[in-house]
Design a protein around this nucleic acid. Sequence first.
RNA 1: GGGCGCUUAGCUCAGUUGGCUAGAGCACCAGCUCGACAAGCUGGGGGUCACUGGUUCAAGUCCAGUAGCGCCCACCA
Length: 996
Amino acid sequence: MSKELPKHYDPREAQKRWLQFWNERGFFHARPDPNREPFCIVIPPPNVTGALHLGHALNNTLQDVLVRWRRMQGYNTLWMPGTDHAGIATQAVVERRLRDEEKKTRHDLGREELVKRIWQWKDQYEKRILGQLSELGCSCDWQRTRFTLDPICVRAVRTTFFKMFRDGFIYRGKRLVNWDTQLQTAVADDEIYHETIKGGFWTFRYPVKGNNEFIRFSTTRPETMLGDTAVAVHPDDERYKHLIGKSVTIPLVNRDIPIIADGQLVNPTLGTGAVKVTPAHDPNDYACGLRHSLPMINILNPDGTINENGGPYAGLDRMKVRERVTEDMENLGLFDGREDRDIDLAHSDRSKSPIEPYLSDQWFVKMGDLARKAMDVVENGQVQFFPKRYANTYLDWLAEKRDWCISRQLWWGHRIPVWSRREDLGWGSVDEVKEVLGRLKQLQEENPGFLSTKSFETGGSASIGPEGQELKPIRIYVCLAPDGDQLAAELERLGFTQDPDVLDTWFSSALWPYSTLGWPEHTPELAYWYPTNVLVTSRGIITLWVARMVMTGLYNMKEVPFHHVYIHPTILDGFGETMSKSKGNGLDPLDIIERFGTDALRFLLVHQATETQDSRMPVANVCPHCDALVPVKQEHMYMRTRKVTCPNCKKQFRPGGPWPAPDPDLATAKQASERFDMGRNFANKLWNAARFLFLNLEGYTPGAIRHEELPIEDRWILSRLATTTAAVTQHLENYRFSEVARTIYDFTWSEFCDWYVEMSKRRLQEPAARPLVQRVLVGVLDGILRLVHPVMPFVAESIWQPLNESAFERGLPLPEPAAESVVIAPWPSLPESWRDAAMETRIGRMQELIRAVREVRNRYTVDQKTNLDVFVRCSETIAEDFRTLAPFIRALAGVGRLECGPQTAKPPQPTSHLTPEFEVYVSLVGLIDLAAERARLQKLLAEKIKHLRAAQAKLSNANFVERAPADVVQQQRDLVADLQAQIKAIEENLRELEQE
RNA sequence: GGGCGCUUAGCUCAGUUGGCUAGAGCACCAGCUCGACAAGCUGGGGGUCACUGGUUCAAGUCCAGUAGCGCCCACCA
């Protein structure tokens, strides 16, 4: 039964249909099965901030290729999908909308209401993102979809935090944050921008204690003097050497501070060579403070006014204090002048106000031991990076062992499960403290697994107890395990409150490979699929995410979270810049899917996934009025172009992208890139090859292939298929995605379609030959469909299904009933013995002969219908071959007379094509331009002679003959012999042409 | 400043341990609507492999340096 397909492959219809089919059949759902080998990938969860972009498309396509391939290989395959709450990014986006649409801040709404709003946002975008992944063809187990704030993930986070708290890995420490005094919040590094403003550079003097000297220093922020805890000089600076170890007095607050030597902080050639050190309000000073164990005095209130540590200046705004401090110093005669200076000052993106470095209390994870273990597993190969070089990024970063600050001053995220005594209650009497401690101890004894207490010093000054003893300024912190929440009320009765902060988003992401599988419960899924097999991600988060997953995996599971880490390239725009919302140079995968089809998108993404770091993707807008492609220009990005005039139809439109702003008055362009042509064309080529088969399947009968009885061309294509299959499999194992795409493409197009299908046409007309060639055609197509399925699942299924109707039993070497879907068809593997170098050589010679004749035909523009007479001078063995293949040579090259053999005579007025193995002569009586032919031969002769000389030179080099491997030398000798023979033949042909 | 990369045809890129006259897709030129496919077929033109030096019988490939570009991290008192 044959079936006729439409002339063009229609991706849209196919995508809709097969997605539904696959989901209905539940091919993507996996359950633990101890009798089968597991394979598992967990998705890098996309942020619920917005829509997916091209980078996501790449990341997820590559995962899907691996997952579909392993599923076909028979692994019990789980691809775990999900999304990430992305703390800062998501809260910021919702807050921005709140401001734009309702003119409200988060404080107007309150914590609970804001979080509710963000959940609504999340629901909306999660749905959209999952839908996009599905449209991309991702074969995730959708029933298992997780979100990083799901109850199950909350439990994993709480359990981990509790364990780390109890084991002493989590501690309370200080950190300088970027403080926004207007919004009264810390902002992330990527939420600040730098702007040059007019500022000043003030010079003051501090009196040195014990003699009449002064030490001069300069600063751009005089008010920070109130928080100075040292003055630093360079250890080798002769001007100050004698002062090191002495102290100075800060006049305004009457505090004595030491003069220290610090070669890292101080550059003696700048300013006066002496630097005031304010550890609580400057990153470098902070580092210096740590080095020298200096006190760190915070002088700011959250609103930017000076706090009680500023003594007489308390309560005033820092800018006002800057003036006052200067005046007061001047009155004391300690002010040495001010000069204007441009200052590169950090500003908050959101409030546009200047950022203050602000020392605040934060939660940290101690990295030392955790990092060491995470390094070990990469060094000993339990976790392998592909490409290898990325292991360096990972190891270098971990080697620094910088403690991980895990608290964030946000409302959206995992709330830190720690309660502490409220500051305003104070510690009143020792009795009260004793009572609280006693009660805590009791609680802990009753609930050892649920509650853990720790105390950490706070900043602030010590106070004196009722009996005159010095009370250490400590705070008691109580951490509750997830099942300990009923104790929260009790803690609150004791005057404890929960920490308002949330955890760094990466804290929950770090648990993703096992929290998604149900940890801390001992689920069958966890036992079966953990450790997962491979993590596929981009290099940007090797440190933030990959390293932390390994750390927590080892800590919680005692086992690595995955064995392989594949890092794929980053897609840049046509100008080599990263795609980003602010530049407006992104590309929306949905635009590509709509215009080219999902398979085209996927093919191209796989094809360009080489081992390099980056790859470029020039982007064009499609004019919504006339469909012309308008390339995105670089200046568009920097000007944030809002309107583009189409050079074709002169109408205006808004440039497209994954993040277009709506504008009812202006049509928004879809985007495209010519690079996807390749994928679309390939899908169509495949489709049409199948279409050819369907037109010729009438009377198909399944049957065994007896390899040794097959004609040359069949053995050739099967040899090529066997080689291709093995190569594709190997490339997949090595994560060489680009090679996967290339290998399948070349085999399908340049060998199967260009040669085998062409050769089959004649045989299909012969009743005796027809059944066998049908079987081979069907068998090879079946193999191609399986190979191509992981990359282009939709077109593969679109052909697989009708093939099941026309040729249900098929395959190589024995026909078998086909799988109901290519998704679950077995991955092909062909006998090694089918690889047949001799067949490939023989067909290769035939191809060269055909190409030679075609070239002659094109050179002299001989009509396609005119047969050419061809004379081949070659060995008897080769002649025998050409005679066997003569029908193909005639059909594919348009040949009439074909004579071959050692004694074959040249025809009159011949044009020639010489190869090392045979000489081809085509008679061109009446067509040949003798002068042109002579010129061509002269040119060819010159090239050959040049090449010969180079080859001879090599051989005449004694070192080469002596030191190069024998086969390389022999190769060179053969080359010289071939060239000499060819030159001789060309010269002979030229002489003959002269006589004409 | 530290780290990791990139620079090969007009464009986007391959080129796995050094070894044929360096490849592909798109674009370009010429010819083809022949019963799978014009999203196609056939053939063709086009490259001093960024630059300089080194190692080697042999370098696009290895090493060093220079220039340009990109990313990550740190920093910009």
